[in-house]
Amino acid sequence: MTLLAEDLLLLMLDEESGKPLVDSTKLPRVLAGAVLLDLALTGVVTPAEPGEDARKGRLVIRTQEFPEDPLLRDAVEIVGKGRPLKPESAIEKLSKGIRDKVATRLVADGWVREERSRILGLFPSVRWPQVDGSREHALRAEIGASLVDGITPTHRTAALISLIAAVDVAPKLFPNADKRAMKKRAKEIAEGDWAGKAVRKAVDAVNTAIMIAATTPAIVAASS
């Protein structure tokens, strides 16, 4: 199974240097948001509705059958442990170690390679230069068709675009495109009617949570 988080990380790694296009605060949190969206798109986790036992907007597990994918299964266990979490608190918990977990999958599948080194001989550094660009190029072409050419995206592509919009990375992916028009189009897609009611609420909650978590991680961690 190909996860949104895998596609997202491929897009957010520079092809040659293997360095992320977003900072170390935003990257793990948007990847965690991608995991939550995968769970929402499959109906596993969505925000609570009025009248449910959980407070409105808190994340609720909707099925007794856990996903087969180990990363998604672990995410369900984390989200379902204890009292229902706010989306931003869930993202904070899921973000721990997620970059390396997703990168390990990309390495195993042959899309990137891992290179570790030390800056000034002291500080550990890791990057993931591209090995096979076919998947990343196909993703970029599909997203570009929606953002730049105005083509209606698939639900999956729309979900990816909503995550890209949450961290405003589209201008780095398409540096020659009109940034203002592209940002407007990304927002239109992120807020569009491609998702059902429950998923729509999850998308909105995740995108808001990513922005909150990326700017105030310490506050988020303390507010679960």
Rank of each mutant, 00 (worst) to 15 (best):
R29L: 07
R99H: 10
A202H: 04
A145P: 11
D178I: 07
G57T: 02
P50D: 00
S117M: 05
T46D: 05
E114H: 02
T42M: 12
S17G: 13
P84V: 10
M182I: 06
L122R: 13
V45L: 00
Q64T: 14
I98A: 07
D149Q: 13
S89H: 10
E191M: 11
L4V: 06
H155P: 10
T152C: 03
D178P: 05
V44Q: 10
D149N: 14
V45T: 02
A103G: 02
E92R: 11
A221P: 03
N176C: 05
K179I: 10
D100R: 14
M211I: 12
D100E: 15
I164P: 00
A209I: 10
A205G: 09
A170N: 06
I161R: 00
A222S: 15
G110T: 03
P129D: 08
R180Y: 10
Q64I: 10
N207H: 07
A40G: 14
V169E: 02
P67C: 08
W111D: 12
E68R: 14
L10Y: 04
V102L: 01
S95G: 14
G97H: 05
W194Y: 15
V44F: 07
S134T: 13
A190H: 05
K86G: 04
V79A: 04
L122C: 01
N176R: 13
D132W: 08
D168F: 06
A34L: 06
R118Y: 14
I210Y: 01
A138T: 12
H155A: 13
I210D: 02
L94W: 07
M211K: 15
E188W: 05
L139T: 06
A222V: 11
E136W: 11
V126R: 15
T2V: 11
L71C: 01
S17P: 09
L9K: 04
N207G: 12
L39H: 01
G57F: 08
R180N: 12
I91N: 05
G110K: 06
D14T: 03
D178G: 08
P70V: 10
A5H: 09
V199C: 06
D149I: 04
S223R: 14
A54K: 01
F174C: 03
L41S: 10
P20E: 03
R140T: 03
A190Y: 02
T208Y: 11
A177K: 07
I119W: 12
S24P: 01
V44R: 06
S146I: 01
D23K: 13
T25A: 14
V79K: 01
R55A: 15
D14C: 03
D168H: 13
L163G: 04
I164N: 02
A141W: 09
P217D: 00
L10K: 08
E88V: 09
P28Y: 01
P70C: 11
D204N: 13
A48L: 04
P175Q: 03
A54C: 05
E92P: 02
V126Y: 09
G18I: 08
K201G: 14
A195S: 14
A108G: 09
A221E: 12
A32V: 05
T104V: 09
A190C: 07
E114D: 05
S24A: 15
R127S: 12
T42A: 13
I219C: 05
I164H: 04
G150W: 09
E88L: 07
L41P: 09
E136G: 13
S146Q: 01
L36N: 10
A221T: 08
K179D: 11
T215H: 11
A158M: 01
P153L: 02
